[in-house]
Write a protein that binds this DNA or RNA. Structure first.
Lengths: 138, 138
DNA sequence: GGTAAAAAAGACAAAAACGGTCTTAAAGGG
DNA sequence: CCCTTTAAGACCGTTTTTGTCTTTTTTACC
């Protein structure tokens, strides 16, 4: 349970690859795809969602490609994961305003809330810089 | 992302309902299903997996039904969730023996490990007794 | 301006997972 | 033997995942 999808995995691999490049260097999707072992067209889609959120910048045409939208130290793993997987919601109760339907009876609610917060906190605490440099955080 | 499935939700609702009964009382699946708003045949399946793991005991025939396999205080939320959803694996890296394929490069690995441990710890810390009594733990 | 190179956008599709249902069997009580 | 209830497993429609393919747009360069 609670498994990251391939998309999430690919997203991380791809953007970490970008984070490893010298700042300002523009990289082709094809290069990232090959280097990370991710299907190119799929990765392209992922990078498009990154671009919409400003996590990466993109340039079209000859000499085009992608680079990080801001310094690697300013991009958290949470932002990356949520960009492609959506918000961290371990249970439906937590999606809207505690809309369990069975709110009063839902004693599990606070447990999911806590899990949600813990995961968020951990992912917030890791930046692309950490990942690119292989920092031993834990 | 990281969402509990319906099966997981139903499983919790169902077994918590059992935990609320007076110990030793045998309850029909049909009653639990109606009380918790879970499709009966689906819930029956879920209870079957519980039975295999000893989380509940079952009796067939007239007067049959289900009851907890041990005291509610001895059943953790983790056991319930893992019974129906499988082990807590936020990332494929963590499933086998760190079988990332790309092990050395996988700097995210420790992050998922930590998330896995945090979730496990939280779920381990909640028993069916807590849930049945609506204990405010967090 | 024309052409080639790239990303953007969106339609499409196979495969797997989800969320069940249905049927048959087995066991127990009266 | 018959009724009740769980056990087991086949089955099935829908949604999500995991992509691909095609067309369009933008840009650089000649």
């Amino acid at each position: 349970m609670m498994e990251l999808t391939r998309k999430g995995e690919y997203a991380i691999r791809g953007i970490v690859y970008l984070a490893k490049q010298s700042p300002g260097k523009v990289i082709l999707v094809s290069e990232v795809a090959e280097a990370t072992g991710v299907p190119q067209t799929f990765l392209a889609k992922i990078f498009q969602s990154f671009a919409k959120l400003g996590l990466v910048n993109s340039f079209r045409g000859t000499g085009g490609g992608f680079l990080l939208g801001r310094p690697a130290a300013k991009i958290t793993l949470r932002q990356v994961v949520e960009a492609v997987e959506g918000p961290i919601i371990p249970n439906r109760c937590l999606s809207d305003e505690g809309n369990c339907g069975r709110t009063s009876e839902c004693t599990v609610h606070p447990v999911w809330r806590r899990i949600q917060e813990e995961i968020a906190a951990i992912l917030d605490g890791v930046t692309l810089e950490d990942l690119a440099k292989g920092k031993k955080s834990l």
